[in-house]
Amino acid sequence: MENYLFIDKSVDKIEYGEVKNKELVSYCSSCYNEIRVGDIFRSVVKKKVPSLNCYFVELEGKKEGFLDFKDVIYDIKLGDVIFVEVYKINLGNKAPNVSMNFSVSSMFSVISYKNTGISLSKKIKNSMIKLEKFKEIKTDFGIKLRTKCIDIDEEFVLSDVLNNLKIFEKIIESRNNLPHCKLIYRNENFLTDFLVNNNSKICVVNDKKLFKSLKNDRFLENEFILDENYKLKYDYNVGIYMESLTKKSLSFKNINIVIESFEALTVVDVNSKNSFLKNDKSKNSLKINEIALKEIVRQISFRNISGIIIVDFINMKLSDRESFESLIKNLELPDERIWTFHGFTKTGLYEITRQRGK
């Protein structure tokens, strides 16, 4: 096959993405033992640091979370057991940002702690969904119906809301359970969201239980193929490319790229082994940088690099820099994170930022 989705489930992680024309065009991984955005912990308030406008809370296994004062929704004191949700993963050993306004979500609804009543996404307000049955639900928590509810059976959406409420209430009831510091909820809908966004495409799955679950999902229109021997690193189309994601230096098309990650930022250096256009040094630099840019963006996405990224491209004339900037405006990005291309600094380095997340 030349075009397909893949889900490679192993003992410690799930890797998933898309191969198009025998080339890796999207890739994500989710490790079981790492803290993720969306994780909900029962935690204990350990320290208050007024100088940083925050509390530090113990999450699990001596791991701490950074609870900004703005993310506190009711009065708390040291030693209190509270629920928090991770909403930002920070670089290095820095504690992840957490909020007391946690939520439980699915494809069709979101239940949140702080809000009350029923809210609708903008697109759903003009749909035919009636709210009478939803208004009969007795709860102190907020209910939001998501855009994907449109054209879905109302009874099914109601069932989805009630199921999320049940999960949410079970979390609340566990406040006094032991141990106090524990991961108590993890949203596992990322695979469903990935498949919905790539509906009707063929997907190779290597886990029998997961295969059956996905195949029986009435909202997925993908064609699933079970191959228990499938391993991404041995995929004849992209296996060799996957090795480059673990290397500091990679070479392709006579271009060498070095990627070095530090606690505060990531630095990328671009070099060329040969000239593409020997008669025009500046145009040659532009050509090399164009090719390097596309690969750098892929590497940033697939390695899940976020925060500040500084790229040392090969020097170009001012007019060629303008052409390069035009290319960036039309660049097709490989993921849905927020990317910002800030442009060249006074020293000639190019600055990029990419949103942190899952």
Rank of each mutant, 00 (worst) to 15 (best):
I14A: 00
Y74G: 10
N229E: 15
I240D: 15
E85F: 00
N222V: 13
T139R: 04
K358H: 02
I14T: 05
N163V: 03
E332N: 10
D160L: 08
K144W: 00
F41D: 08
F302W: 09
V311K: 09
Q299A: 10
T116V: 01
L331I: 15
K62N: 15
F224C: 13
N93K: 15
E85V: 01
E64T: 15
W339G: 07
K94P: 09
K9H: 04
I118P: 01
R303K: 07
S99M: 05
N90E: 12
K166A: 13
K182P: 04
S319F: 00
K70M: 02
D75P: 04
L220E: 13
K283G: 08
K148R: 14
S200V: 04
S326F: 02
D193W: 02
F219E: 14
E290C: 02
N229S: 11
T353G: 01
L333H: 12
C149S: 09
G38M: 01
N176W: 00
D68S: 02
I291F: 05
T192I: 13
D320I: 00
D217G: 05
F341V: 07
V49A: 14
E336S: 10
F194D: 14
L277T: 11
L265I: 07
E85N: 13
S103Q: 09
E132F: 04
A264W: 01
S26M: 02
P96K: 05
Y350K: 03
N115Q: 03
H342M: 14
N53G: 14
L120F: 01
N90H: 07
K123I: 06
V11K: 11
D269N: 12
I35S: 09
F190Y: 15
P179F: 02
L226C: 13
E325P: 03
N93C: 07
K62W: 03
C31V: 05
L131K: 08
N274K: 12
K133Y: 03
I89M: 10
N164C: 08
G348M: 11
N274W: 05
V86H: 02
N279T: 13
G343I: 04
S319P: 00
K47V: 14
T347D: 15
E23I: 01
K135D: 04
S285D: 06
I82K: 06
V45S: 04
S119Q: 01
M100A: 11
G307C: 14
F69V: 04
L195N: 12
K283T: 02
V268Q: 03
K182L: 03
N115H: 00
I137R: 05
Y87H: 11
K77H: 09
S323A: 08
L131H: 10
N197I: 06
K148F: 12
I314P: 06
L162D: 13
P334Y: 05
H342T: 10
L250I: 12
K253G: 08
F69T: 11
S112E: 07
K248F: 06
K170M: 04
K346D: 15
L145N: 00
V19I: 13
K170L: 08
K88M: 11
T340D: 11
T347E: 15
N289K: 00
I172K: 15
R356Y: 00
W339Y: 06
S261P: 03
R356M: 03
N330G: 10
K233E: 14
K47E: 14
T345G: 06
N90Y: 03
K125E: 13
D80S: 05
F324S: 14
